[in-house]
Amino acid sequence: MEFALSDEQQQLRDEVRRFADNEIKPVASEHDAGESYPHGVMDAAAEMGLLAPHVPVEYGGVGYSALENAIITEELFAADPGVGLCVSSAGFGAEALIEFGTDDQKERVLPEVTAGDAVMGSAISEPQAGSDVTSVATRAEKDGDEWVINGSKMWITNGTVADYFVVVCETDPEVEDRYSGYSQILVEADRDGLTREKITGKLGIRASDTAELRFDDVRVPEENLIGQRGMGFLQLMQFFDETRTAVAAQGVGIARGAAERALAYAEEREQFGRPIGDFQAIEHKLAEMHTNTEAARWLTYRSAWAVDESPDDVTMLASMAKEFASRTAVEVANEAVQVHGGAGFVNDHDVERFYRDSKITQIYEGTTEIQKNIIARELFDKGF
């Protein structure tokens, strides 16, 4: 049992931390306030090889493991969750191509993404289908050698900036097994009939682009089907095991970033003639914040290890990691604001932004309640 990062992993963490300090922190508040996508940061991230680094080397990526991706994600989110999400989600949906796509699909799309020439999006949620994926109503019907897609998607990350979408569609509504009627289809963003509308006014992660997509007789060639027809639901469940681990890493990054800022403020802010960090009430807050962050990190690392090494364990571990790390992010960010007092209630300090950004980790990629359902189901099925 080894609890230390390898020399290469430690070097990776240090390099990403320097990148985040130099490229993300200086512009974070600007992109949050303007709800603007950080194109300059994305260009710099492409040069660093940080866009979809899990893509295999033969398709332009670095081939990093889930653990190494978790390390990268934590560093990006500790600098700023909104801009960090833009970098970490540039290849959102690439997992479907890596695992199930054809050679042509991989060769056509993945090198563009890793080079920073294209962005991907995963189109799953709909206005009436969030936690219940089997309620997806977007329909794809065969017409000759094409798929014709109609429907709408909501809350889509990278919605107006993406060049490619992996779209979950109902392709076989007549099947008796409700889990076998769905497929994933690759859709280029410039297809006729696809319209996109940016969603603004979000509580947090404002730098990250979010949009509603509408498909009106969008035609794509039949070879855009990803994997086997009717296997979309099962593909998606594997995808969630990986992305929930990534969201757990986001939560760890948010918690660490908030905790570090609270510690620094407690050392410099004085009341009653001494730093507030000298008071036991603040000391206990800081101790709990850092302890819970450390616990969340190692549960996340355990889940990331399982993604690569122990598939039978990953579903429960990914849900455990996401539930705990996202809860830790919200609680630590809340306490960081409390440590800052009135100063934490305005955007002069980063903790105000971290507090707003933290909440989404308990919602996307499956709500906290869904994670608890999954954990309980796995316990009843396999035991502890």
Rank of each mutant, 00 (worst) to 15 (best):
S29R: 14
G49T: 07
V175Y: 03
F233S: 14
I149N: 03
R377L: 11
D216C: 01
E47N: 05
L85R: 08
G251K: 04
I185V: 15
A123D: 10
V168T: 12
F272D: 13
A96T: 09
V337K: 10
V57P: 00
A28S: 12
V87K: 06
D241I: 00
P311I: 10
D241Y: 05
N224A: 12
E222I: 15
E283K: 15
A66G: 04
G40P: 03
L234G: 13
R274I: 09
A281K: 03
K198N: 11
L203M: 13
N158G: 09
G230N: 11
A259N: 04
G383K: 06
F92G: 03
E369A: 15
T315V: 14
E188H: 14
G159D: 04
A137C: 03
R108Y: 04
K25W: 03
A45N: 05
R108Q: 11
P221M: 12
V83C: 08
G201Q: 05
D350I: 14
D308H: 12
P56R: 06
D80R: 02
E126V: 13
A246C: 06
A336E: 04
L317E: 04
E283H: 09
K106A: 02
Q271H: 05
A249M: 08
R297K: 15
M120G: 05
M289F: 08
A262P: 01
V168P: 00
D313A: 14
G40L: 02
E95T: 15
E176L: 07
L299I: 13
H290N: 08
D7W: 08
A321F: 06
L85Y: 04
K106M: 09
T102D: 08
A325R: 00
V113K: 02
K285T: 04
T368F: 11
D163W: 05
L194Q: 06
G366L: 02
E294S: 13
A162E: 05
L286G: 09
D117G: 08
R196Q: 08
E112K: 15
V27S: 04
A211N: 10
G151D: 05
R261T: 10
A376E: 14
T245A: 11
G253Y: 02
R353G: 02
Y364K: 01
Y37T: 10
I71H: 00
G84F: 01
T114H: 02
W298V: 12
V57I: 12
G40F: 01
I124N: 00
T195R: 11
G40C: 04
F165Y: 15
R297H: 08
Q228C: 07
P275W: 00
L186S: 11
D43S: 12
A246V: 09
Q280N: 06
M154I: 04
A376M: 14
D7L: 11
Q271I: 12
P127H: 12
